[in-house]
């Protein structure tokens, strides 16, 4: 069975390592914070200017001066710190953040990502995404394998305006875990019950299948 959004978040949470500073994008990536593996300490950075983000506040304890980059009310944990936007992007561009997780509309087999604009239709802007993808050493994309029309989001070439080039390292979708390698998308894991053939059919870009592909363990 294909994963739901929570399943994708749980699988990505397995990529967290002790001591990581992590930036989570809006949407599925935000859910990753709920599934930090036992015994691992990580700190979440939000580009609007906070490190050490905690869970959402209890009702009645929301503070308008305390939000994340998705404009949601948040709390802070012990050791948290606030800073301005230039300092925040110094952390990002300066490669002090070890992992970036973000959503995408399209990813190409070269590791290009498009997630900020649909010409003539959606003009929201790139926010911090271009800075994040240009500098992160480790970028994981969290997304559904296909769009609402059933078309593959893993392409030979992106059709939408790019957010960054040759930057995506890993992709976790509702169907699979894939690594971007020199020749295409290397299939690493299948979602529970999903066949390699299903993944092949949902992938427009070159899919590299080597040996038996294990199922994800969630």
């Amino acid at each position: 069975m294909a994963l739901d959004k929570i399943g994708i978040a749980k699988r990505i949470a397995q990529e967290l390592k002790d001591g990581y500073y992590v930036n989570l994008g809006i949407g599925i990536p935000t859910l990753v914070a709920n599934y930090i593996p036992e015994g691992i300490n990580v700190e979440f950075q939000s580009e609007n200017g906070v490190l050490g983000m905690g869970p959402f506040p209890f009702e009645g304890e929301e503070d308008a001066d305390l939000i994340n980059a998705g404009k949601q009310t948040i709390t802070t944990l012990d050791g948290a710190v606030f800073f301005d936007s230039a300092t925040s992007f110094s952390m990002i561009r300066g490669r002090h953040v070890q992992l970036t997780v973000l959503g995408a509309m399209e990813v190409s087999e070269q590791g290009d990502i498009a997630n900020w604009k649909i010409p003539g239709k959606m003009v929201k802007g790139m926010g911090g995404a271009m800075d994040l993808v240009a500098s992160a050493d480790n970028i994981i994309v969290a997304m559904m394998h296909t769009n609402k029309r059933g078309e593959s989001k893993l392409l030979k070439k992106c059709s939408l305006p790019l957010t960054g080039v040759a930057c995506v390292k890993k992709i976790v979708t509702n169907l699979a875990v894939l690594e971007v390698v020199a020749k295409g998308f290397k299939l690493l894991e299948r979602a529970p019950g999903v066949k390699v053939e299903d993944i092949q059919n949902a992938t427009e870009g070159k899919l590299i299948i080597e040996g038996d592909i294990p199922e994800m363990v969630l």
């Binding site: 209890f58 929301e62 308008a64 404009k71 949601q72």
Partner: peptide, 12 residues
């Protein structure tokens, strides 16, 4: 006014 755009809370 300090409006909140996305009021998100968790249950006690």
């Amino acid at each position: 006014e300090k409006r909140i755009e996305q009021r998100t809370v968790r249950n006690k």
